[in-house]
Structure formats: structure tokens, C-alpha cells
Write a protein that binds this DNA or RNA. Structure first.
Length: 551
DNA sequence: CGGTTTTGACCCGCGC
DNA sequence: GCGCGGGTCAAAACCG
């Protein structure tokens, strides 16, 4: 691996990554001080060289220079010149100055006043720019919150429906069979999918240990916690482990904290439980992205810290494990591995939801993974028996983009795979035919289904059966994904999932935005990617993505 | 010096 | 029970 050369410390990473708070607050303040000092203190001659101090903000310097010229001409050429200048760009400034000078009486005080006003102007503009930046940052945060909100909302609706179905089912079963089993089930009333529940318990157990009755099959999350717990007990809980444990705990909390709007809506404790279960499950849902890239990692705008690497069976390429480090408690993880069949294909699997504001470059991917996970879960959870059927080792395709995404909801983690290996022409076949209008209704103009015909080559490549049977399409890195063996029940579920996903414009919009950003990032032309990971390409990514996300 | 990467060890679930 | 594979940890090495 090229990790040694590309590793690099964290500082370039944090510098390159346009963390909003880092960017928008430091520079304007510098600018204020510099610009103000120059104009007030310096004479004409001293001002000109100052223009070359490029450390300062361009905007402030331009203002300074403009004022210099005016002042110079006013002083040397008299009233006519001065009058001429006053009709220039800074009308407000000039008139204000003249007003004050008439009050004060002298001409030189008038100049000073002008200077002061221009100083203030510069400061105000700097402030304005600062506020604009803040505004942008807030907008980004807002859009993320909105995204999370809608995702969670959909999931809650799904849960409610499932609960409703279950009640109906139970009452039906009670009529038919009055056995104790059913009665017991009825007492528990809201039995959600077992796997779902276990995941929820894991997070609940951390916060509330007063639920010892939780037992049964252990979910990976529980395993993780138990493993951590056992290690903690063994080693006497070093500071690091404490930190880690705290991190995990706070990650769950923060997960919910990141979506505060929904949780209070649950009045009964069971619903709260379900919500947290849903969140835990969402953390476990995975979104896998296949993309061609020479880089060791695709640039998604986030900061990642590698915490492990393993040789996976059946793949000579190692699998790398990354954690999001943009926030201390961010639960998002990802796995990166090259495809065994095609080494140019990089498979990135995301898991979890960011609990912190994201830079614009990261918004697309985060939104996609979030929405995809949500839709995957809400659509894939069978409502018939509340348990993710073991027969649900199935995959399906997005009808809107047959070569784009694959659902693989095999236990324990439902996974959705976005195949971007045909990315160069992706934008040309957003909508293969008129059959799938709805999902792209809300697309930004850039991504609105264009007049380009669906690429016939890709179209032929993307047939359902071909993709299913293609070993390349099976993300080899995750879980126990299996090749499709469609059963009637699974196909129903898959259909439901597909329908749910494709009916959600938010998801499709986010999906397309993410895909487009990825295309920009993983394109072979991006030569700087070849030996470096995210940090080296973030600036480019930000530039490239800002347009996409902004739309 | 602080953050990241590397890498061996550990734990757990699962299949036999 | 044992081995295998996946996932994670954490000390050491590395980097800027």
C-alpha cells in the first residue's frame, strides 16, 4: 500500500479540510485590523506599498487603494477634482464626509473624516463578508439537519406503520390462536424486528442499565460493546479505553442529539425505545460505494482516521477501517477496499451518521449515506413477522438507475451498494427512460434529466441479471452478503424497498449529488489523488463540490 | 508535539 | 470445542 508515503500528519488534513468554523472566522478578523490600521495611520505614499501586502484580505486592500486615489486627487487638484471624485463609486462615503466637514468647518478635518468613514466602511464590509461566511456555514448546517430530520421522519413513519401492522396481525393471531406464546407477544405488544431491537438495546443499555432482561441473539453492536467492556475489565480500564467507551456512549447520544426534533415527539417509552433502536439500526445500515479510483481512498470531504487494516478472505487487497474524526464522538466509520476482480475499483462502505456539521464537500456523501441507509432500512424491514427474514439475502436494483445501486440486505447489516464504476457517463443516463420521472423531480438543474439518451452501452451493461451474477458487484468486504436467491417473500420486500427508495426525491437528489461529487473526485484525471488520501485533495473537492451541493 | 498510520493481538460469531 | 474470518484495539512508529 502507498500508505507510508501518503500518510502525513493530521495538521495538513485539518488545514485542507474546509471546516467551516476554521475557515470563516479567523481571516476576517485579521483583515479588519490590517485594513483599518493602514488607512488611518499611513500617508499617501505609505499606502501604496501596503497594497502589496497580500496576506491581508483582497477586499480590504481594494478598498484601501480606492480611498487612497480619491484622497490623493482631492488634496492635490482642488475642488473640481474633489467634486469629480465625490461622484464616484463611494458616493455615500463622500457625502457623509462633506456633511461632517461642513459642520466641523475645515477642509483637512473633512479629509480625516473621509478617511475615518472609509475605515469604517472597510470594517463594515469585512464584517459583512464575515457574516456572509457564517451564513453559508449555517445554511450548510441547516441543510444537514433538514436531511437528518426527513430521514428520521421517514423512518419513524415506517416504524409506526410496522407497529400498526403488527398490532393488526397480533389481534388476528389472537383470534386464531390463543396460545400463551401469542399472549406473551401481545403483552409486549410492540415487538419490533429482533435484530432491530438488539441494536437498540445496545445503545439503550449504555445509557440505561436498568434493562437487564434484554437477552437473546447478540447483535454486532452488543458484541462490540461487550467486547469493549470485557477488555475494559481485563485491563483495568486504561484512560484510552475510557475515552473509547465514552466515545461510543456519547456517539449514540450524540446521534440522537443530532436529531433532537424527533425524539421528544414520542410520548410513550416504547416509542422512544423504538426511535433509539431505529437510530442504532441506521448506524448499522451500510452504504457501499463502488468507484474507480487510483487513490487509496475516495475523497468525500470528511476527515478519516485509519484504525485498522485486515486482509479479507478472497481478496488480496487489504481492507482498511476508518473512523470519522471531524468530531470526537462521530460514530461514522467506513471501510475501504479494492475490488479483487478489478483493482481499479475502490469499494467504500459507510456506516453510521455524522453527528456534527459537515463541510459542503462532505454534505453530498453524508446525505447520500444517511438517506440511503434510512430508505434501505425503512424499505427493507419486512412487516410481516417483524424479523428480518433469513431469506432476505437478496439484492435488488434501483429501477431509476439500473447500474447504479444494489440493495443487499443480508444479515446482519443491510447494505446498499452504489455502483459508480460507470461514472464517466453517469450524468448522461440519469433517467434511462420516462418511466422514472418522479425520483428526479427535485434534482438541481445540473442534474435534471437531460436530453441525452441513455447510454446504450451502459444500458446493456446494467441489466439486472448481469449485475446480480457479476461477482464484481458483490461488495466483498462487508458482512455476509450473499448472492441473490430470490424467494417470493424476499422479492416482495425488495420490491417494497425499491419502491420506497425510488419514491423519495430527497434520497435520489442526495444520491445524484453525491455521485456527481464522487465522479469529480475519483476521476482518473485527478492525478493528485494517486498517491494521497483525502487530505491532499480536499481543496479541489471543495471547489468542485460546492457548486453541486449548493444547488 | 500532536495526530495519523501500522500492525500484531484480541474478541466474538459462526460453521463444522 | 476448535478454527476461521471479521472487526477493533492500542502501542509503536511515523510525519509535518
Amino acid at each position: 500500500m502507498d500508505n507510508g508515503g501518503s500518510s502525513g500528519g493530521g495538521r495538513p488534513l485539518s488545514d485542507n479540510h474546509s471546516h467551516p468554523s476554521a475557515f470563516s472566522f479567523s481571516k476576517p478578523f485579521k483583515m479588519d485590523g490590517g485594513g483599518g490600521g493602514v488607512v488611518v495611520g499611513g500617508g499617501v505614499s505609505s499606502l501604496v506599498p501596503n497594497r502589496r501586502i497580500n496576506e491581508m484580505d483582497f477586499f480590504a486592500q481594494k478598498e484601501t487603494a480606492r480611498v487612497d486615489v480619491k484622497r490623493e486627487t482631492t488634496a492635490h487638484d482642488g475642488l473640481v477634482q474633489g467634486f469629480h471624485i465625490n461622484t464616484g463609486l463611494n458616493l455615500h462615503l463622500a457625502s457623509g464626509g462633506s456633511e461632517k466637514s461642513s459642520v466641523d468647518g475645515g477642509t483637512s478635518p473633512s479629509n480625516k473624516e473621509k478617511l475615518n468613514m472609509s475605515d469604517k466602511m472597510v470594517g463594515l464590509r469585512a464584517e459583512l463578508e464575515n457574516m456572509n461566511k457564517e451564513n453559508k456555514q449555517l445554511r450548510a448546517m441547516l441543510s444537514q439537519v433538514n436531511n437528518n430530520y426527513s430521514a428520521l421522519q421517514m423512518h419513524v413513519v415506517t416504524l409506526m406503520q410496522r407497529q400498526h401492522n403488527r398490532r393488526a396481525e397480533i389481534s388476528l393471531a389472537n383470534e386464531v390462536n390463543t396460545e400463551g406464546k401469542v399472549g406473551e407477544r401481545n403483552r409486549n405488544e410492540t415487538i419490533v424486528p429482533r435484530q432491530f431491537m438488539d441494536l437498540g438495546r445496545a445503545s439503550m443499555a449504555e445509557k440505561d442499565e436498568s434493562s437487564p432482561s434484554w437477552s437473546g441473539s447478540r447483535s454486532p453492536q452488543t458484541n462490540e460493546d461487550a467486547s469493549r467492556e470485557s477488555r475494559r475489565r481485563k485491563t483495568g480500564s486504561t484512560s484510552n479505553e475510557n475515552k473509547d467507551g465514552g466515545r461510543e456512549e456519547s456517539s449514540d447520544q450524540s446521534l440522537q442529539g443530532g436529531l433532537p426534533n424527533k425524539v421528544p415527539k414520542f410520548n410513550c417509552s416504547q416509542n422512544v425505545e423504538q426511535a433509539s433502536e431505529a437510530m442504532s439500526m441506521m448506524r448499522k445500515a451500510r452504504v457501499s460505494v463502488r468507484a474507480r479510483s487510483e487513490a487509496s481512498m475516495i475523497s468525500d470531504g470528511c476527515q478519516w482516521r485509519k484504525y485498522g487494516q485486515k486482509m479479507a478472505k478472497g481478496n488480496p487487497c487489504p481492507r482498511a477501517y476508518y473512523r470519522c474524526t471531524m468530531a470526537t464522538a462521530c460514530p461514522v466509520r467506513k471501510q475501504v477496499q479494492r475490488s479483487a476482480e478489478d483493482r481499479t475499483v475502490l469499494i467504500t462502505t459507510y456506516e453510521g451518521h455524522h453527528n456534527h456539521p459537515l463541510p459542503p464537500a462532505a454534505m453530498a456523501m453524508a446525505s447520500t449515506t444517511s438517506a440511503a441507509a434510512t430508505m434501505l432500512l425503512s424499505g427493507s424491514m419486512p412487516s410481516s413477522d417483524g424479523i428480518m427474514s433469513s431469506s432476505f439475502h437478496s439484492r435488488t436494483m434501483f429501477p431509476c438507475s439500473p447500474s447504479l445501486a444494489t440493495i443487499s440486505a443480508s444479515a446482519p447489516f443491510p447494505t446498499i451498494t452504489l455502483d459508480l464504476t460507470h461514472s464517466p457517463n453517469l450524468l448522461q443516463h440519469q433517467r434511462p427512460n420516462a418511466q422514472f420521472h418522479v425520483p428526479f423531480q427535485n434534482l438541481p438543474q445540473n442534474f435534471a434529466p437531460g436530453s441525452h439518451a441513455f447510454n446504450p452501452v451502459l444500458h446493456s451493461q446494467s441489466k439486472f441479471s448481469a449485475l446480480q451474477s457479476s461477482p464484481e458487484m458483490q461488495p466483498p468486504q462487508v458482512g455476509t452478503e450473499q448472492v441473490l436467491k430470490p424467494s417470493s417473500s424476499s422479492s416482495d420486500t425488495v420490491t417494497a424497498a425499491t419502491a420506497a427508495i425510488t419514491a423519495d426525491p430527497n434520497f435520489t437528489a442526495a444520491l445524484v449529488a453525491a455521485i456527481t461529487s464522487i465522479i469529480g473526485n475519483v476521476h482518473p484525471n485527478n492525478s493528485s489523488n494517486s498517491s494521497t488520501n483525502t487530505r491532499s485533495t480536499n481543496v479541489d473537492n471543495n471547489i468542485g463540490n460546492s457548486n453541486l451541493v449548493g444547488n
